[in-house]
Design a protein around this nucleic acid. Sequence first.
RNA 1: UGGGGUGUCGUCAAGCGGUAAGACACAGGCCUUUGGAGCCUGCAUUCGGAGGUUCGAAUCCUCCCGCCCCAGCCA
Length: 562
Amino acid sequence: MDPISDTAPSDFIRDIIADDFKTNRHEGRVATRFPPEPNGYIHIGHAKSVCLNFGIAAQYGGTCNLRMDDTDPAGESLEFVESIIQDIHWLGFDWQDRLFFASDYFEQLYAFAVELIRAGKAYVCSLDADEIREYRGSFTEPGRESPYRNRSVEENLDLFARMRAGEFADGEHVLRAKIDMASPFIVMRDPVIYRIKRAPHHRTGEAWVIYPMYDFAHCLSDALERITHSICTLEFENNRPLYDWFVDQLISWDHPRQIEFARLNVSYTVLSKRRLIELVENGHVSGWDDPRMPTVAGMRRRGYTPEAIRNFCAEIGVAKNDTVVDIALLEHCVRQDLNDRAPRTMGVLKPLKVVIDNYPEDRTETFTCPNHPQNPVLGSREVPFSRVLYIERDDFMEDPPKKYKRLGPGREVRLRNAYVIRYASHNRDAVGGEVTEVHCAIDPETRNAPPADGRKVEGVIHWLSAAHAAPAEVRLYDRLFSVPDPAAAGDDFVKFLNADSLEVLKGCFVEAGLTEAAPGARFQFERTGYFCLDEKDSRPERLVFNRIVALRDSWSKGQGKA
RNA sequence: UGGGGUGUCGUCAAGCGGUAAGACACAGGCCUUUGGAGCCUGCAUUCGGAGGUUCGAAUCCUCCCGCCCCAGCCA
């Protein structure tokens, strides 16, 4: 699929770029990048940024690099690098040979730092972390200059070289930019640009004991890659003066421009990396790819399509307002996409046995059922019918309300793609009183035809021949949290976890043909929802389905149910 | 509190001095062998508030108010 053909959105960033493009500001180039830190899996919020950066590049015939922002080995790993690569590819984007790592630039970055020292614009500071914080001042008071601020260039050069050589303990010294301790931009008060940190790096191993800070590494990495528009989220707006400062000091060529947009929030879930890590590490979910997770891996396993996610990202737009997008919009995009392409099938989640009294025990016939009622291109399949059927337990009521259009005493109902059946009797369990079996009679005239006498049969229910159906496990997923804004509870957000976010149904039945479906294949179980074969747990002999999203259901809504 | 941002329908979001797009949600109706899908209709006399400029303001000016971000050797 061509990502940019999904829709052609317009937003303030594209306006800026269109203008730069028109005025030939970067020699007519458009170069963006998506710069994740490989310390977690990417989620729907990252997907917004991925679509933005890759989408813009494609729109202008430019390039978008994938750059791992791996400047802090703590928490970063190859597992995350690999998952990020897989997830962005799956979303439908490609960076060809332009996969980069900030760690690729460590040597160059070190040289930039030396250059800054030589220019008298950086110094080695030997204050400890607490002291640096104290010296930084506050929102209302300016900071004070470090006593080490005026070390000589020679001493700074020597100390910095020895920092790199591993002569000092972690935290003993840092390299700082010499800017302005009184700046209202706190980030400009002599920011730390290198720290000593003995931690093995997933790519550079033990080669370095000093690592550059984000503010230093990011803008210069952008410049080294000749990025024209460095798009990031709003919280970096305060850092922009520093971004520009480093570039102004060290870069002689075309300067990249940082542009900030509002990060995505989605109702009934959390998107901060810290919180997602907590969900995974504390076992609240089964892993990063738990189908309830808002991660790309989770959504993929859940059965969401890349197209649906891209459409969602196009729908929500790009602006600078803090927003919380209704998760219903995401669900809408998933339904909209799946409605067009998911083949129909019948699945009985909570079976109730129905016996057709006037149908011979030894008889089986086959119905040809369209795989998509509006799209014949998807073909059809044969579905067997016999005397004993399963229907959905919810499709029978002993004492139904008047607007109920399904089966009940004295009622008749259409079996989807098959006969009209009329209620005859039903049995109940002697102990629990639960309905165990319903007896019905078919109207043989109604085999794929309306009743001959012109009477109207309103209800249509799905069914399966008991002798032919395949058993399956079905996992019903619901929103991860029970409140729209779980993050509002701060660290207590886990107390709003939705206890019913996963319901495992064991005794389900599906059409036998699904036994041959490919892992990950998506279907609509008619009248119920969209489901996919779980890629990890499903086996032909033990089918496991994930509910991707339920169908819109105006009946249960009117009944005041979920 | 100093600084940086931002306030348009329940939720996103267009609008860029000429008289409030669209989407989701919601509510009705039509249609229907998925209570699905589809279709139709309704849904901001008003743009955080108050003044002002103008023939005309969501758009320009002034003041006020709310919300978000910044005091990591995280990104």
